[in-house]
Design a protein around this nucleic acid. Structure first.
Lengths: 174, 174
DNA sequence: GTCTATAATTTGATAGAC
DNA sequence: GTCTATCAAATTATAGAC
């Protein structure tokens, strides 16, 4: 049995990943969970607080998943498989990717948590590539950009094939 | 002297590129132009009609700019410079990139125009790379994804340096 | 072509009962 | 912790005067 807070976070994640920060209301979110919007406000006072918390939570979940991935060059392929699976399951954009696109017009706390997500990702991949790349940090940034852009393009085109095409030679960026 | 329609399109482009489809209202848009929201509705009956038209218009403008770019491999570097300049001037995401991220929850006509933008871009770059790549279409898709993802990452991180890092070895994708 | 006025609905958020 | 009820503001959109 999952707590109400967890169910709110799960529903909010789905909503943001499909439609962005401004693309859904507290009422829609509450309906997803099976409660009323006032009950959502009981757990998260404002939309800003909810999405900032969600983004930090997403970063934590993501970091946990990273812990189980292989090290070295193989980790890049595992990143690719992770992103692809999210697309294939219909989960929408990466949460931080969606918020990153909108970030200039988002509340500060949300933009800040989004920034921290990418800092974490860049750090993880930079560490990973330290022995495989002359410029590990630059390679890490290029790979993350490629994955986010491939997701975006696949959604825009309505075809997961675009993700596969865009990332097939991902390791050339190392 | 620009027409009211052109000023509406210009303001709408800026709004969508910063905040997305749901991130602004007709009243804000009208204020940008210096008119009332009812006057915006006179030119574009609905938000869907406005943004669908805007996206088709953006595709046309983009295609015109492409006409002045060099051919062959040098065109890839010119693409990169184009995208970078937009970021540097504070123009936000690529319009189609922003709408592509949100596309699953957008009105059909808007999603369709967004798809057509990327079809056009992929076709242009595929033609360009025909003599320089064994898989010109796949290379084209990879390059476009890289550029869109680099914009997204630069915005999320608040640093144009991330765009430069992500795209420095863009030609490796050819 | 632009305006004022307004309709009908939705939004984020709060008060207070249970 | 959830609800009903409600608020004030904002939203997309329309009617009709000028």
């Amino acid at each position: 049995m999952t707590s109400t807070v967890d169910r709110i976070l799960e529903a909010a994640e789905a909503r943001v990943r499909q439609a962005g920060y401004h693309g859904f209301s507290f009422r829609e979110l509450a309906a997803d969970v099976g409660i009323k919007s006032a009950s959502v406000h009981h757990h998260f006072p404002t939309k800003e607080a909810l999405i900032a918390h969600l983004t930090a939570h997403y970063r934590g979940k993501f970091k946990e998943e990273l812990a189980s991935l292989p090290v070295g060059r193989a980790r890049v392929a595992a990143y690719r498989a992770m992103f692809r699976e999210q697309l294939e399951l219909g989960f929408g954009m990466c949460l931080a990717g969606m918020l990153g696109a909108e970030s200039e017009e988002l509340p500060d706390s949300v933009a800040e948590e989004t920034r921290r997500f990418f800092d974490m990702l860049v750090a993880d991949l930079t560490d990973t590539l330290e022995n495989d790349s002359g410029e590990p940090r630059r390679a890490a940034i290029a790979i993350i950009a490629q994955l986010e852009g491939a997701m975006l393009l696949a959604r825009a085109s309505g075809s997961i094939k675009h993700f596969d095409d865009a990332t097939e030679r991902l390791e050339k960026l190392i």
